[in-house]
Amino acid sequence: MEINIVQPLYQQAYREFKKLILTGQISPGEKIVMSKLAEQYNISRTPLREALRQLQTEGLIVQDHTSMKVVELNKTDFLELFHCRLLLEKEVIRMIVEEITEAKLEKVYEVLMESNDAIEVGDSFKILELNTQFHELLIMSCSNYQLAHLLNHVRSLLLIYRANINQKPQYSKEIYHEHLEIYNAIKSRDVERAVEVIEEHLKNDQIRGQSVFE
């Protein structure tokens, strides 16, 4: 892990461990041993504990009364979460079309262009980050805080599934083009088209995600 003197140590550790999980270097279901991580990455317990707490908040790490481990993939959970996401995101997108500013739309477009560049060089972790950022920028434009908060929670739990999807280059291109369609519909202020393309995107994502369990 490269140490950045500007960024707090726990944030550096959080980003590094998140990358290890989402790239499969720490496997689903694998136990997290703090002493081992502290020694391996030469980091003290306090920033390490905070980094793991953040990952736990995102649902990437779970803890019971005996141990802490990386969340395991479960098809039933996946399908239930996607059903929730579809219902929530369709409602959020309706509001976004009318509420998002042109300045925010410019940022969304910049993220799309960065995504395309990351796809060209095959940086799967960067692609995942930018895909996440694409949706977050849109959701932050929703004036209903509680609705946006619920959607973000569901999306964070699905993060490990989306990470597995991003390991396949052909999916990255598909997702990029679907995101571009969503952007164009919102840019045109076409509510019905935006709902149509977000629903198509999420249904395709569910199909892509189910391949993890096959």
Rank of each mutant, 00 (worst) to 15 (best):
K75F: 01
H65T: 14
R189E: 07
K168N: 14
E196H: 12
M95W: 11
V154T: 10
E136S: 12
E129W: 04
I182M: 12
Q210P: 05
A148E: 08
H179Y: 02
P28Q: 00
K31C: 10
G29L: 01
V71N: 03
I127H: 00
L130M: 13
E200G: 07
E89C: 05
M68K: 15
A38M: 09
R53C: 05
R162S: 11
S35L: 10
L202A: 08
T132D: 12
R45Q: 13
L55V: 00
K69Q: 13
I26D: 02
V6S: 10
H83C: 05
V195E: 06
S124I: 15
I96E: 02
L73D: 12
I96H: 04
S67N: 12
T46H: 09
K31Q: 12
S35C: 03
Y145I: 14
E50H: 07
N152P: 04
D190C: 07
V6Q: 10
I32T: 01
I207Y: 07
V154N: 01
I182T: 11
N166F: 07
N166Y: 11
L158H: 04
S188C: 10
Y171H: 14
K75Y: 09
E30K: 03
E99T: 10
V154E: 01
E99V: 11
L22D: 02
E2P: 05
V195F: 04
L48S: 05
A103H: 07
M68D: 04
N74H: 11
S143K: 15
Y145T: 14
K18C: 03
L22V: 04
L48A: 02
N152Q: 12
K18D: 02
F82E: 07
R155V: 05
M113P: 04
